[in-house]
């Protein structure tokens, strides 16, 4: 009788945890698996909502850079580093784009939003700094 009670308590607890904490834990685990080799994630917002975050990024020269550009805004944004010939194209609201490239030259490179996203669109830019190893 006592064993039965214990078993039922355990089963209930496991079920409840699986249905409450479960999805959150699964989300975090899967997300960290997907982002395991990202150099950085840049989120895109119109300038009046906070602009790119981060707006300044430093990476070592000659190493592969993997960026995820995640549009958390309600309009289309873009991401491009023209000097490095890197372009994510249009990134729709709620979508993400992953970019891979290897910068070969030390320097500071501007990245820009390529889609007219707001009246402050021209301020939507940031800097990728390529540093010595």
């Amino acid at each position: 009788m006592k064993i039965k009670v214990i078993v039922s308590v355990i089963v209930s607890a496991v079920l409840v945890l699986a249905c409450t904490v479960g999805p959150i834990a699964a989300t975090l685990i899967y997300e960290s698996y997907l982002t395991r080799d990202l150099t950085a994630e840049i989120i895109t917002r119109s300038p009046e909502k906070g602009n790119y975050s981060p707006r300044f990024l430093s990476v070592p020269v000659g190493e592969k850079v993997k960026l995820r550009i995640r549009n958390v805004d309600t309009v289309v944004h873009g991401f491009a580093i023209p000097a490095l010939q890197v372009d994510a194209g249009e990134i729709k609201a709620g979508h993400s784009v992953t970019l891979e490239f290897t910068p070969e030259k030390i320097g500071k490179y501007d990245f820009y939003c390529t889609v007219w996203c707001s009246e402050h669109h021209l301020q939507m830019r940031g800097v990728l700094e390529v540093t010595a190893q």
Binding site: I43, R45, P47, E48, K49, G50, N51, S53, P54, R55, R70, V72, D73, H120, Q123
Partner: peptide, 11 residues
Amino acid sequence: RYGSTETYQLQ
């Protein structure tokens, strides 16, 4: 609410 707490001062 805008994805990160980082803010930007409009120029």
